[in-house]
Amino acid sequence: MSKGWFLIPLLLLNLSVQAEDWPGEQWPSGPTPTGQSIEALEQYAFPPRDDASREGIRTDALLVIQDGRLVYERYAGPTTAQTPHLTWSISKSLLATVFGVAYGEQRFVLDDPVAKYYPPLSQHSDMTLADLFHWASGLDWQEDYEYAPLKSSVVAMLYTRGRHDMAAFTAQHDSFSPPGQAFRYSSGDSNLLAAALKNIVGAARYPDYPWTALFEPLGIRHATWETDASGTFVGSSYAYLTARDLARVGLLMQRDGRWGERQLIPKDWVAFSREPFVHFLAGQDEAVPGGHWWLNRGADPTLRPWPDAPPDTFAALGHWGQALYVIPSAKLVIVRYGDDRDGSYRHNELLKRAMAAFAGKMQP
């Protein structure tokens, strides 16, 4: 028998080994690890829940995707697999991902002045879209929450003076630095981007654009994204997704913007999202800002906000413990929803235990 007859089944076997798993209506499932590592993860993420005082770690959902397969899922409190959970500032990274589709359609470049798409910023003609993605608009913004509401720009924007037109409210702030030179975390910057997107994609397409551009291609069917009274998406805060649907966005980013056979987001957009902002100063925040995502590395390679996670880890993070972690080197996507009110939750601790549970077997 010719040796060529043996090549065909071997090639087919090789192709089956390399085939990627992608979710359809449901996620393909894989085996959940057992033993002490999973117990340690659950002991941290799901301690006895105090719903009376709202103290301590209060995880609503924890879901793990490994190499495209759902390998762990647990819910608590009122949250279930069918609950579209408020993502808070994960919305910012979702907005950046929607922008990635528009970028692939060649509708803008990062060096474009924001005023080109949002004229109320005409007095800041040197402010670019890239500056907003780095939370470096230079506007004098105070991102304080319920702990200091009287001086909080974001509380005023979301709930009082600015709630009718959040971008216009943000644009009225004075400057504290030239654009692009200093990091200052700002939900206002995100809502300026949301307003600019309206002119980038066109007013007619805008109300449906997050769905037609991103959610529907990923198979996300039940997302909600609130707008302010002007019809602008609250890009800073008010997107709602189930944990399984948010994991689809994580898998898209883990696989460099590709969904199945389609390059939904250009690779260079994903690279921009994961590139540290050059003017970020260590110690300003728990994680390093990228392009509206948070990174586990800075311009200084020794800067590791989450030392027990791989350097390529990046995340979308939100108020009260919301998190979407993406770890390309371990082929992991982790969704964690929570209702933490006292700041006791630590990203590094959960990532350390998740790596021990799910990535240990992948180590050489």
Rank of each mutant, 00 (worst) to 15 (best):
Ile8Ala: 04
Pro310Val: 10
Ala323Leu: 11
Thr80Gln: 15
Ala81Glu: 06
Ala357Glu: 03
Ala115Thr: 07
Asp208Gly: 04
Phe46Lys: 13
Ser89Pro: 14
Lys331Ile: 03
Ser236Leu: 04
Trp293Asp: 02
Leu197Lys: 09
Pro311Met: 01
Leu197His: 12
Leu15Arg: 11
Asp112Lys: 10
Ser329Asp: 02
Asp245His: 02
Ile327Ser: 04
Ala223Trp: 01
His173Ser: 09
Arg107Met: 08
Arg221Leu: 10
Leu193Trp: 08
Asp131Val: 09
Phe314Gln: 00
Leu86Ser: 05
Phe99Ala: 03
Ser152Gly: 13
Glu55Cys: 04
Lys3Trp: 09
Pro305Glu: 05
His292Cys: 06
Thr83Ala: 04
Asn191Glu: 07
Ser187Asp: 05
Val326Arg: 02
Pro289Met: 01
Ala52Lys: 13
Val71Gln: 01
Glu216Asp: 15
Thr313Val: 08
Met362Val: 04
Glu25Lys: 08
Ala194Asn: 11
Leu94Tyr: 04
Arg258Ala: 06
Val326Lys: 01
Thr34Tyr: 05
Ala136Asp: 09
Arg244Phe: 03
Val270Thr: 14
Glu105Arg: 09
Asp60Ser: 08
Leu7Arg: 13
Phe215Trp: 07
Phe233Asp: 09
Gly104Val: 11
Ser230Ile: 14
Arg346Pro: 06
Asp112Glu: 13
Asp21His: 11
Glu216Pro: 12
Ile90Tyr: 04
Arg297Val: 13
Arg248Leu: 10
Asp308Gly: 14
Tyr337Glu: 00
Leu121Cys: 00
Ala115Lys: 06
Ala203Glu: 07
Ala354His: 06
Arg248Lys: 10
Trp88His: 12
Gln363Pro: 02
Ala247Gln: 03
Tyr206Lys: 13
Gly250Cys: 10
Ala167Glu: 00
Arg262Gln: 05
Thr232Met: 09
Thr227Asp: 10
Gln66Leu: 13
His222Cys: 12
Asp285Gly: 10
Met127Val: 03
Pro149Lys: 05
Gly360His: 05
Pro28Phe: 06
Pro113Ser: 05
Ala102Thr: 07
Met127Trp: 02
Leu252Ala: 07
Asp51Ile: 13
Pro307Phe: 08
Leu94Ala: 08
Asp256Gln: 12
Ser177Ala: 15
Leu252Ile: 14
Asp67His: 15
Phe46Ala: 08
Glu275Lys: 15
Leu197Thr: 12
Asp339His: 00
Gly318Val: 03
Pro120Lys: 04
Leu7Tyr: 14
Ala52Glu: 15
Ala229Gln: 07
Glu143Leu: 10
Asp228Ser: 09
Gly260Ile: 07
Leu332Glu: 07
Gly231Trp: 11
Ala196Phe: 09
Pro119Gln: 09
Ala61Asn: 01
Trp211Pro: 03
Asp174Met: 08
Glu143Asp: 11
His279Thr: 14
Val109Ser: 15
Leu251Ser: 10
Gly235Asp: 14
Asp144Ser: 03
Pro210Trp: 11
Thr227Trp: 04
Ser122Trp: 07
Val234Lys: 08
Asp285Thr: 12
Met127Lys: 03
Gln106Ala: 02
Tyr206Thr: 05
Met355Ile: 15
Glu42Cys: 11
Arg244Ile: 05
Asp208Asn: 10
Val335Lys: 00
